[in-house]
Amino acid sequence: MELFTFDDELTAGRIVDRPNRFVVRVRFDEEPERVFLGDPGALEGILEPGREILCSPVDDPDRSTDYDAIAIDVDGTYVSVRAALANDLFEQLLAADALPAFEEYAFRKREPQLPDHGRADFLLHDRSDSPAYVEVKSCTHVDNGIAKFPDRQTERGRRHLRSLAGLVDDGHEAHVVFVVQRPDVDRFRPYREVDPDFAELFAQVRNAGVTVHALATAFDPPQYRLHERALPIDLEA
């Protein structure tokens, strides 16, 4: 199922290195160019020197980089490296009624204020007009067909899980959705080796009533499409 088309120009280059979490140096012709990287994850096995990377030129004199990183070719599969895109993809899928798990829900707003403090990514309402809060996470790490999150330690991710569990304790409905931004995957698992505390908390909040979902998308330039509506969730290490 096609979600949307990336209309901006795409320029292919080769990865040189990654000087910091948000910059990758790319060789297009001669001297390497600094490219903004919107995925602060470790990107182990993805962002490697010599790999092809698709970038979008940006005309903004106030920026220190002239390109955005869009996707990296990993053995013939494009892996989207735009973490914030996961929310847009989820919203597109909601609008298209493409997710059976959410077919009884209507979109209300993005970034709703939580009853206690902080914000969620989405507020939905079910058919009885009861609120349901949704947190969306982008996932790119895949090992032998298993998507794993997070690919580096994430206190922010643990805080989000605790917030969702608190919502359930207060009688609200809460969901977390992992959007795997690559199609070479057949199941999802918390990455216990990288963040054991997240994995333990993941199991606890799931048992406490937070509903967990995982889905997979694909980028076939210039189209983004839905690859798998519901990946199995695996809690084994």
Rank of each mutant, 00 (worst) to 15 (best):
A218S: 14
F22Y: 12
F4L: 10
H213I: 05
A42I: 08
R152H: 15
H213L: 07
R110E: 07
E155Y: 09
D62P: 00
P183I: 01
D68H: 08
R14G: 02
A12N: 13
L123Q: 10
A174E: 09
L114M: 11
D97F: 01
R27H: 03
E111C: 05
D121Y: 01
E228A: 11
L37H: 12
G76E: 15
E236R: 11
P221D: 05
V16G: 06
D66R: 13
R127G: 06
H227N: 09
T65E: 14
F188K: 08
L85Q: 14
V168P: 04
E31A: 13
L47K: 12
Y67N: 03
V212H: 14
H160A: 11
A98L: 06
A84S: 15
A83S: 15
P190C: 10
R182M: 04
A69W: 06
S80R: 13
L114W: 09
P57V: 02
D234L: 04
R21S: 13
A71K: 11
V23N: 04
Y133K: 03
R225Q: 15
G76F: 14
N20G: 02
L10R: 08
V81S: 07
F198G: 04
S163K: 09
V35I: 12
R206N: 14
Q204K: 15
Y78K: 14
L93E: 04
E111H: 12
E103V: 08
E33G: 01
P196R: 12
E200P: 05
V136T: 06
A96V: 00
E173F: 05
D29S: 11
V194W: 07
L124C: 02
E52K: 09
D62I: 00
A96C: 00
D73M: 09
A106N: 09
I15V: 15
G50R: 10
F36L: 15
R152Y: 12
L54H: 02
A203R: 15
F178V: 05
A216C: 11
P183N: 03
I53T: 04
A203D: 15
L93H: 00
D220M: 09
A218V: 10
I15E: 08
H160D: 13
V177W: 10
G171Y: 11
G145D: 08
I70P: 00
A84N: 15
R21A: 13
G157W: 03
D7P: 00
I233V: 13
V185N: 01
I70G: 03
V180Y: 03
R14M: 08
A96E: 08
L114Y: 10
R27G: 01
N87P: 02
